[in-house]
């Protein structure tokens, strides 16, 4: 999704304003000239200046593009669906790994993603399961990363 530079610049200026206001509320310790608010506010000012530059750039080139243009792929639902799948897989993982355990969640993520990419169901499931078991062995068993076991707790 491409925005005109002016749109992006305006968003950055608004964001900079938010940071500046939020950082102005940070307390300063006694006798410290440069407290927690100093650096964020300095950055916010710099960002706002850059934002103005982008707005100027964007207005100059406005005739060429228009405010927003979608890349060709995003004009089809398939593209949006793809984004939703990836984001869903990551969000799903962070919500479910505690309850379902690593093996199940990882298989779901990998197999689900493969199914979306039109891998046939059986290979997708097999590969997902294999990837989950293999990564578990490497990371949890060998490298001692505490991947959650969920319902398998106490069984393996």
């Amino acid at each position: 999704m491409r925005f005109n530079d002016a749109v992006f610049g305006a968003v950055l200026i608004a964001f900079a304003a938010y940071v500046f206001i939020a950082a102005s509320g940070f307390p300063t310790a006694a006798g410290v000239a440069y407290g927690p608010g100093f650096f964020p506010r300095l950055l916010a000012c710099l960002l706002a200046v850059c934002g103005l530059g982008l707005v100027a750039n964007g207005l100059r080139g406005l005739s060429a593009g228009g405010w927003v243009s979608l890349s060709p792929a995003l004009r089809e639902p398939q593209g949006w669906f793809g984004i939703a799948i990836v984001l869903g897989a990551l969000l799903g993982y962070s919500w479910l790994d505690d309850v379902l355990g690593y093996h199940l969640t990882a298989t779901l993520v990998v197999s689900g993603f493969m199914l979306f990419l039109r891998v046939r169901p059986l290979p997708a499931l097999a590969l997902g399961l294999a990837a989950a078991i293999l990564t578990y062995l490497v990371f949890a068993r060998f490298l001692l990363v505490p991947l959650p076991l969920g319902p398998l707790t106490g069984l393996i």
């Binding site: 479910l96 309850v99 969920g150 319902p151 398998l152 707790t153 106490g154």
Partner: peptide, 13 residues
């Protein structure tokens, strides 16, 4: 999800 896994877990334990 928790309920499902709890059942799974209970059956096992």
């Amino acid at each position: 999800a928790f309920a499902a896994s709890a059942m799974l877990g209970l059956a096992a334990l």
